[in-house]
Deep mutational scan, measured.
Amino acid sequence: EDAPSSDDLEQFAKQFKQRRIKLGFTQADVGLALGTLYGNVFSQTTICRFEALQLSFKNMCKLKPLLNKWLEETDSSS
């Protein structure tokens, strides 16, 4: 699987934040939901840093598919 470019990540982080707010979730909600869904709880700080593009590139790449999946799950259930 190709690693996303930093442009991709930036684009995704923006879209993710907009969708999250529109769906009415806090950063902490998302962190907990990831724990429920995938067994990895993320702190509010981590989600905040992801949205602000302040995580390392490697961590951004790791989180992106999880957050993407969460969006898909959340979209389909709302």
Rank of each mutant, 00 (worst) to 15 (best):
T45S: 12
S76C: 06
D2N: 15
A33P: 02
S5Q: 13
A28T: 11
T46L: 07
L71W: 03
M60E: 00
L55D: 04
L9K: 05
L23D: 06
S43Y: 05
Q11V: 11
K58A: 10
P65T: 07
N40P: 07
N68D: 10
E73P: 05
K64R: 12
E73D: 15
D2M: 15
L63E: 04
L53C: 12
E73G: 08
C61I: 09
F12L: 03
F16K: 03
L34F: 05
S78Y: 12
A33V: 07
E73I: 06
Q44Y: 07
R20W: 00
F42A: 10
L23H: 01
E73T: 11
N68F: 08
C61V: 13
K62N: 13
E10A: 08
L34V: 04
C61N: 07
F50D: 00
F16V: 04
K62D: 07
S56K: 06
G35A: 10
I47Y: 03
K64C: 05
D7Q: 09
E1F: 14
T26G: 04
R20A: 02
Q11K: 13
S56W: 00
A28L: 05
D75S: 14
F12A: 05
D2S: 15
I47V: 07
K17F: 03
I47D: 00
V30F: 04
F42M: 12
I21E: 12
L71Y: 00
Q27A: 11
S43H: 10
V41I: 12
Q11Y: 07
D8P: 01
S6L: 15
Q54F: 01
S56E: 06
K69I: 14
R19T: 11
G39D: 08
T74P: 05
T36N: 11
R19E: 06
V41M: 12
L53W: 04
C48S: 14
S78G: 14
L66C: 07
R19H: 04
N59H: 14
S43I: 05
F42N: 03
R20Y: 01
T36K: 14
L53G: 13
I47F: 00
C48M: 12
E72D: 12
D8G: 10
Q44C: 04
E1Y: 13
I47H: 00
A52T: 10
L67Q: 00
Q18R: 08
V30L: 08
F16E: 03
F25V: 06
I21A: 05
Q27N: 05
Q11P: 06
M60I: 01
L53N: 15
E51R: 04
S78T: 13
D7V: 08
C48G: 13
A28V: 04
K22W: 03
K69F: 01
L66Q: 05
G31E: 08
Q44V: 08
A52N: 15
M60A: 07
I21D: 03
W70L: 03
R19S: 07
F25E: 00
Q54N: 08
E72R: 10
L67R: 02
Y38N: 12
C61S: 08
F25I: 05
L37M: 14
F16P: 01
K17H: 10
P65G: 09
W70S: 06
L63Q: 01
T36W: 03
Q15I: 15
T45V: 09
F12G: 00
K58Q: 12
L53I: 13
L55M: 09
S5P: 13
L32S: 14
I47A: 01
F25D: 01
N68E: 13
T36F: 02
C48R: 13
K58N: 15
T26I: 00
Y38K: 09
D8V: 08
S77G: 14
E1D: 15
Q44T: 14
S56T: 07
